[in-house]
Write a protein that binds this DNA or RNA. Sequence first.
DNA 1: GCCGATTTGTCCGTATGTATC
DNA 2: CGATACATACGGACAAATCGG
Lengths: 244, 244
Amino acid sequence: MPRAKYQSIYRDMKQRIEAGERQAQDLLPSENTLVGFYGCSRNTVRRAIAALAEDGYVQSLHGVGVRVIYQPVTQTAFSMGGIESFRESALRNNKVPGTKVLNLFTMNVDDRIAARTGFPKGEEIYFLQRVRYLDEKPLILDLNMFLTSQVPGLTREIAENSVYDYIENELGMTIVTSKRWITVERVTELDEKWLDLGDYNCMAVITGQVYNADGIMFEYTQSRHRPDYFSFHDTAVRKKPLRL
Amino acid sequence: MPRAKYQSIYRDMKQRIEAGERQAQDLLPSENTLVGFYGCSRNTVRRAIAALAEDGYVQSLHGVGVRVIYQPVTQTAFSMGGIESFRESALRNNKVPGTKVLNLFTMNVDDRIAARTGFPKGEEIYFLQRVRYLDEKPLILDLNMFLTSQVPGLTREIAENSVYDYIENELGMTIVTSKRWITVERVTELDEKWLDLGDYNCMAVITGQVYNADGIMFEYTQSRHRPDYFSFHDTAVRKKPLRL
DNA sequence: GCCGATTTGTCCGTATGTATC
DNA sequence: CGATACATACGGACAAATCGG
């Protein structure tokens, strides 16, 4: 699968850390040692290490070594990170995913939608609304808009399973980048109608734009989560000590 | 400041994009062209491009080129991204920051705090609670715990300004990695006491652990945001099309 | 459909700088 | 000071994807 050498090294190192071969605070073998172990150049080892650092698994310490900072997570709520489909996230969290399609139709982008989503006015889009279940509980209200020119042939049946699976495997499109932002918004009538909210009057909302390999924004998403089952994870690396 | 060549190239390219020299959808000059322009090796150009891609400014397209996908953001709410101090974020968002210290004392980590934060039991910590203002409005309730062994000499005065500034510039400690997660929680009495919440019964909560260059988790943070002024941004790159 | 030019992706070897101990 | 380890940079080679003729 990972044809690139640095990727297989990255995966191997990652698995070793997850397996507990190196505990938090331990130093990895030096880069030069790893060069010998994996039979590759130092550049290649460094790429693998850089990828682990981005995942928050290790951190490089100049003149010292590479320290493991990975700690197994204690999972509670449904967590999302990276670009993942609902199905992928659900399975990663050991939940049984379910989907009910509320609406699926095509329409043209008007001024209001153009301003909100960033789609060009006049473009034809699919408008898709779904309720997402985890272990039978309705937790998420999803709104998706796809450019029909980019995602043709979308059906209710596909929407009930994985649209991303369809996009990537059937249409052969490559999803590359997504921009997302998280906000907290008031519950709407739709939220209350389809989800079990108790007395919460807020929802956790993930809004996003997804770009394909052509650099075209082909999807706009809004995912409204029940607050008590929402968790978003992130690891960040401080680049430059900003001076203010 | 950026002594590394690839960083100054990164900054230059970034500024040019922000200045509108290249619009979204445009292709950058090819890597080889940039090698000539900046007088460096191809690897160095590629590092700068990789950094721009992580920022969501460009995306590389195999066999095609590097496409600009940066679009100037329409700022509404207060946004936080990367590892930034409150002051840094506030200034970046053109707001006037203010701080009121509610509590600052030392204590020892008990079982309950150890379980919640990940600090070792028995360690001495600073316990700091603050209200954060933006343009005079109380919007954020901050809770910080610092290992006193790592952040000695913390005073009320420092807490009223930037603790991070103190840590990095006075103590000379380098902040490297942070893990954060975002959740939505019910309002507490403290939230209601110090913030103007209207009838919101939820808060956006950013919880995080911060590691220094020694790989020691020296800070635990909980930042409780008023929902209508909360926004968290993220760009993600899909690495491998997961097969399920 | 094939071929060749262009462009990005991967990998290597080497040299030098810099931080730590 | 010297040894070790990571950081940066260069130059070259080949692979893989894209696009036009």
